[in-house]
Nucleic acid binder design. Sequence first.
DNA 1: TGAGTATATGAGTATTTGTTCATATAGGGG
DNA 2: CCCCTATATGAACAAATACTCATATACTCA
Lengths: 127, 127
Amino acid sequence: MLEMNQESCCDVIHQEAIDDCTEQDLTESVVEGVSETFKALADPTRIRILYNLSKRELCVCDLAEVLGMTQSAVSHQLRYLKALRLVKNRRDGNTIYYRHDDAHTMGLLQMAIDHSSHVNEEEVDKK
Amino acid sequence: MLEMNQESCCDVIHQEAIDDCTEQDLTESVVEGVSETFKALADPTRIRILYNLSKRELCVCDLAEVLGMTQSAVSHQLRYLKALRLVKNRRDGNTIYYRHDDAHTMGLLQMAIDHSSHVNEEEVDKK
DNA sequence: TGAGTATATGAGTATTTGTTCATATAGGGG
DNA sequence: CCCCTATATGAACAAATACTCATATACTCA
C-alpha cells in the first residue's frame, strides 16, 4: 500500500533524482552526530575556548580572563564541551586545568579559522 | 591607569598564559565568520540539504520530497543558505534548481560526515 | 489575459540556547 | 575544624531559531 504523500507541492517530480537521493541518504545517527559536532563549533564563546585550549592548557579562571567573561559562563560552556568529549580536565589543588581532547573536531575548527583568516586578509587587501 | 577587572574570579592568575592568549587571540571578524559557517552546518535539515545538493542539482520540490518536509520549510532554509552563498540557483520555467556553491564549506561537511560514518560503523562492529 | 503551478515570504509560535545570579561543592592552609 | 578560594550548578530570562500557515510572487500555457 502506497503512503499518501502529504508533503508534495508539485506534480512534476524528478523521480530518478529522488530515488538516487533516497538511496544515498545519510542515516539519522550520522546526521545527528554531524549536527552535534557543528553545534559545538557554532558559538563564538566555544570557538574561542577551543582555540585557546588548542594552544595550551588553561584553568577556568584564565579562560574567563582571556575571554572577558564571567567564571560561571565559561564553566557552563566547559561542561558542555566536556560532555561532548571535546575537552578534558585535570585537577591540581583547587585549580582545574582544561585542554582539548578531540583531534578531529579541532581539525575542523582549525580549517575554518584558517579559511576565515585568509578571506579576511583578502578583504582587507581590496580596500 | 589600569582597568578594573570585574570578571576576575581568582587571585592566582597565570599571567604568562593570559598574555600569550591575548596576543594570539582571534579577531572578532574571524570568530564571527567561523561561527556563521558552523551555524549553517549545525542543523539536521541544512545538513541533509547540503549533502544532497553536493551530489546533484535539485529543485525545491524534489528536496521537500526527499527530506519529507514541507515546501515552505525547505524554501526558508534555502534562502538562509543562499544568503550565506552556500548554494546558488537557476530558474527553468517555474522550476528553480539549487546546487552547492562553496567548496570550502562543503569540504568541512564532507569531513564531518566521513568521520561520523566511520565512528558509527565502529560502534556497530563492537556490538 | 486568466488560470494553474512552483517557489518565496511574512507573521506567529514553540523550542533551544547562552548568559546571569545566587548558591553549592570541594580542596587547601591555618 | 573553619575559612578561603576555585569551580560547578540550578533556576530564570532574553534572544535566536526552525517550523507552520496563509498568502504573495513569478512564470507557463491556453
